[in-house]
Computed example of a mutant assay.
Amino acid sequence: MWNPDVYLAFADQRGRPFVDLLSRIGADHPRRVVDLGCGPGNLTETLAARWPAALIEAWDSSAEMVEAARGRGVAAQLGDVREWTPEPDTDVVVSNATLHWVPEHPQLLVRWVGQLGAGSWLAFQVPGNFEAPSHQAVRDLAHRPDWSKVLPDSIFRDSEAVQSAAGYAGLLADAGCTVDAWETTYVHELTGENPVLEWITGTALRPVRSSLDDAQWQRFRAELIPLLDASYPARADGTTFFPFRRVFVVAQVN
C-alpha cells in the first residue's frame, strides 16, 4: 500500500524533477495528456494548468493514491501501466518516478512509441540512487541474521532497475525518436527528526514495511536510524543534506 500523506511530506522536493521534466516538453496544444503513475494527483494538476485545453488522463496502480487524486478533482483511473494503451489523440505521455517499479519498462517504452503518433511526446523520470548510502544502509540491515529470515533479497532493487540516460537515449532513438536525456543530482535540504528515514519511508522502504508486522517495523526503523545518521549527519543548523540522483528522458516520436 502507498500512503499519500507520507509521500506528500516532501511534496516540494519530490515535485522539482517533475517541473524540470515538463520544461523540456515542446508540445504547444496537445489534445490528450497522460500521467502514468499519477500518485496523489498534486503534480497532475500542473498538467491541466499548463495545457488547459487538453484532456488529462491519469493512471495509478495504488487505490489509495487514486482516491487521493480524485479528492483533488483529478479523474484518476486505477490500473497497471503495463496494461495502458494510448488513445489515438494522445500527444503527451508523462511518467514521474514510476517506471523503476516495473522491471520490463524498457519494452513498454518501445511499445508505446510504436503506438503513439508522429510528433507525440514521451517524457519520464526515474530515480538513479539505488546505490546511494540510504539504500545500502537498508540492505546492510536487512542482511543481518535477525532480518534476513523475513526480508529476502528479492524485495530490494539495485542499479539495474533503471538504465543510464545514455542507455534510454539509445533505446528510444533506435525505436524512432528524437531524444533529450540527462541526469541530475539534487541535494535536498531536509529538516525535522530523522528526515532521511522519513523520506525513504514513503518510497524505498515500502517493500520492507509490507514484509513486517507493526512491532518488527518499528524495530527495523529504530535500528536503521544510526546507520542513516552515519551517512547523512545533521548540520549544526539542524538541516540534513540528502543527495538524490535522477535520470530524465524526453523523446519525440518521428
Rank of each mutant, 00 (worst) to 15 (best):
W2F: 15
D5W: 13
L8S: 15
A9D: 14
F10M: 02
A11Q: 12
D12L: 14
D12F: 04
G15L: 10
P17L: 08
P17F: 07
D28S: 14
H29I: 10
P30M: 08
N42F: 04
E45Y: 02
W51A: 08
A58W: 10
A58I: 05
W59Q: 10
D60M: 08
S61H: 00
S62G: 04
E67A: 15
R70G: 04
A76S: 13
T85F: 08
D91L: 02
N96A: 13
N96Y: 09
T98V: 14
T98G: 03
V102D: 03
Q107R: 13
L108C: 09
W112K: 03
Q115I: 02
A118I: 03
G119A: 03
Q125W: 01
E131N: 15
E131Q: 14
P133N: 08
H135L: 06
Q136S: 09
D146E: 15
V150M: 11
P152R: 09
P152G: 07
S159I: 04
V162Y: 06
G167Y: 00
G167I: 08
Y168A: 10
A169T: 12
G170W: 00
G176R: 07
Y186T: 04
H188L: 01
E189R: 15
E189F: 06
T191H: 01
G192D: 02
E198L: 00
I200R: 04
A204M: 11
R206W: 09
P207S: 02
R209I: 04
S210F: 02
Q218E: 14
A222K: 08
S231Y: 11
F242L: 13
F244N: 05
R245Q: 11
F248A: 06
V249H: 06
A251S: 02
